[in-house]
Design a protein around this nucleic acid. Structure first.
Length: 218
DNA sequence: CCAATGATTGCCT
DNA sequence: GGCAATCATTGGC
């Protein structure tokens, strides 16, 4: 699909975006970055066409001191190696043998911080997302939950390591503003194994948004 | 409504 | 061999 095939609305939307760069990703406070990613836009432009979503839920993973992190205790494997890259790369891994989970690598090289994208709100390319997920109609399950976000956007483990300023895969600011009292913080999901670190309030979501995984509160 | 379960691969012990 | 940053389905209330 070429740019010339995009309808006017899509072109105008793309023109309104400011792609996030290393000044955003390579800061030291991964918790702050996780909060600031709420409301930002993920764009993918793969074979099924242009798709864009607004991030509604994230989780921060605080590197080598965080027992919930894949990089806890400086663990390096083929899978986790990309977490040690400079901030701004994609970390995509397979969870439970089935789901592709998309994370944003943050901080400087050799500091393995990451933010998991847990849910988002569809903006552009609903049809392409329905096609990828084999769903019939739009509802809040299309992009709620990290596995579903990746599936709707066409993100797979083969995209791990990609620069999130790429032409076909990037995160941007479209000017959407979110006030602090519209952000809810809770403990992270599915990390009970992480002992005391499982209690840290490192999960963030937009208050009242329908596109959030698990329990909501308002 | 909610809890239990199967799917299925990478990485650990 | 066992478990994991999950999801859809099933079966019980």
């Amino acid at each position: 699909m070429a740019m010339t095939e995009l309808i006017t609305k899509e072109k105008q939307f793309l023109a309104s975006l400011k792609v996030l760069n290393e000044n955003f990703y390579q800061r030291k406070d991964v918790v702050k970055i996780a909060k600031e990613l709420l409301g930002k836009v993920i764009v993918t432009f793969f074979d099924n066409g242009l798709t864009a979503v607004r991030i509604t839920e994230t989780e921060a993973y605080n590197g080598i001191v965080d027992k919930a992190s894949h990089a806890y205790n400086n663990r390096r494997t083929k899978r986790t190696e990309v977490m040690y890259a400079p901030g701004g790369a994609a970390y995509v891994y397979l969870c439970y043998g089935i789901h592709h989970l998309f994370n944003v690598v943050t901080n400087l090289k050799d500091v393995p911080h990451a933010v998991l994208i847990r849910a988002a709100e569809p903006i552009i390319g609903i049809d392409a997302m329905l096609q990828r997920t084999h769903k019939k109609k739009l509802d809040n399950t299309l992009t709620a939950g990290p596995g579903n976000v990746s599936k709707a956007l066409g993100i797979y483990t083969l995209h791990t390591g990609i620069d999130l300023k790429s032409e076909h895969f990037f995160i941007a600011d479209d000017g959407y503003k979110l006030s602090k009292n519209n952000i809810i913080a809770t403990p992270r999901i599915g990390v009970d194994y992480a002992a005391e670190d499982a209690l840290l309030p490192y999960r963030f979501f937009i208050k009242g948004n329908a596109y959030v995984s698990g329990k909501k509160s308002s």
